[in-house]
C-alpha cells in the first residue's frame, strides 16, 4: 500500500484535526459549559491534557513497530506531527497545572517541582521534550546531521518512561490506568530491543548491514526522495531502514 502525496497530505490534515479535538473540547467546555467537565473542571482539564500527552507519546513510539509490521513506510510521515502534539499537550498540561494549581506563582511552582517526586519526573520529561521539538524541522535535521539528530531523538524513550512514572506516582492508590500505559510502553520498547538484537545477530552472520534478501533495499520504499530530510526526520529508527528491515531473521 503506497498512498499518493495527496492522500498523505489529506491523512495528515485529518490526523491534525483529530489531534486538536481533545484540546478544543476542553477549552470550549471550560469557557462555555464547565459543568460538562465535572465538579472539578480544572483537575479534569489538567489530567485530560496529561492523558493526551501520554497517548501521543505512545502513538509516536508506535509508528516504527507498526511500520515494520505492515510495511507501510509512509506512516513515518505522520510521526513528526504526532511527536509535536505530544509536546503540545505536555506544554498545555503543565500550563494548566501552573495556572490552576499555582496561579503562576513561580516560587511555589519551583518548590513543588523540587519537593514532589511525581512533579520532578513530569517536569524533567517536559524539559527533555523541548530540544526534540526544537529540532523537529527539516532545517534542524540538516544542521545536526542525521546521525546526531537520531542520537538526540532517542531521548524520547526516557521521556516516555518518565511520563508513565509521573502518572504512576501521581495516583493515590489505584495504579490500573498508569499500569496500562506502562504495559503499552513496555511492549513498544521491547519491540525495539528485540529488533536491535535481531539486527545485531544478522549483522554478525552476514558481516555487514546486509542488503535485503529480496534484493530491494528498503530505501526504495521511503516515499519521499524529493525531501531529503524526510528520511532523517524519521528519526531514531531510520537506521533500521538501511538494513535487514523485514528480513526473516
Amino acid at each position: 500500500m503506497q498512498p499518493t502525496q495527496g492522500q498523505i497530505g489529506a491523512l495528515k490534515a485529518l490526523v491534525f484535526v483529530a489531534a486538536v479535538v481533545p484540546f478544543g473540547h476542553l477549552a470550549l467546555s471550560a469557557i462555555w459549559f464547565p459543568d460538562a467537565l465535572g465538579a472539578n473542571p480544572a483537575e479534569f482539564i489538567t489530567r485530560s491534557l496529561g492523558d493526551w500527552c501520554l497517548r501521543f507519546l505512545l502513538a509516536t513510539l508506535a509508528v516504527t513497530p507498526l511500520r515494520r509490521a505492515t510495511g507501510w513506510n509512509w506512516l513515518l510521515r505522520l510521526r513528526r506531527m504526532l511527536g509535536l502534539f505530544a509536546f503540545f499537550y505536555a506544554v498545555v498540561h503543565f500550563t494548566s497545572y501552573v495556572a490552576f494549581d499555582h496561579l503562576f506563582v513561580v516560587v511555589e511552582i519551583l518548590k513543588d517541582i523540587v519537593k514532589r517526586p511525581f512533579i520532578t519526573v513530569g517536569f524533567s520529561a517536559l524539559l527533555l521534550l523541548i530540544p526534540l521539538a526544537a529540532t523537529s524541522t527539516n532545517a534542524m535535521v540538516r544542521r545536526l546531521g542525521a546521525h546526531r539528530w537520531r542520537a538526540l531523538h532517542r531521548l524520547v524513550y526516557p521521556i516516555a518512561m518518565l511520563g508513565v512514572l509521573h502518572f504512576w506516582w501521581m495516583v493515590k492508590r489505584d495504579v490500573t490506568e498508569p499500569a496500562i500505559y506502562g504495559v503499552v510502553l513496555a511492549l513498544l520498547l521491547a519491540h525495539r530491543l528485540v529488533h536491535a538484537w535481531r539486527e545485531a545477530r544478522s549483522g554478525r552472520a552476514t558481516g555487514a548491514h546486509a542488503v535485503r534478501p529480496d534484493g530491494a533495499g528498503p530505501e526504495a520504499q521511503v516515499p519521499a526522495p524529493t525531501q531529503p530530510a524526510a528520511r532523517a526526520a524519521s528519526g531514531a529508527d531510520s537506521a533500521a531502514l538501511r538494513s535487514t528491515d523485514r528480513s526473516p531473521a
Binding site: 471550560a30 464547565p34 459543568d35 472539578n40 480544572a42 495556572a99 490552576f100 511555589e108 513543588d112 519537593k115
Partner: peptide, 18 residues
C-alpha cells in the same frame, strides 16, 4: 506539607483556581 499536595491553598469546587 503533604508529600503529594501542597496544603497551603485549596480549590473550592467548582472553581478553576486554587
Amino acid at each position: 506539607d503533604h508529600p503529594r499536595w501542597s496544603q497551603q491553598r485549596e480549590r473550592r469546587i467548582p472553581e478553576f483556581f486554587a
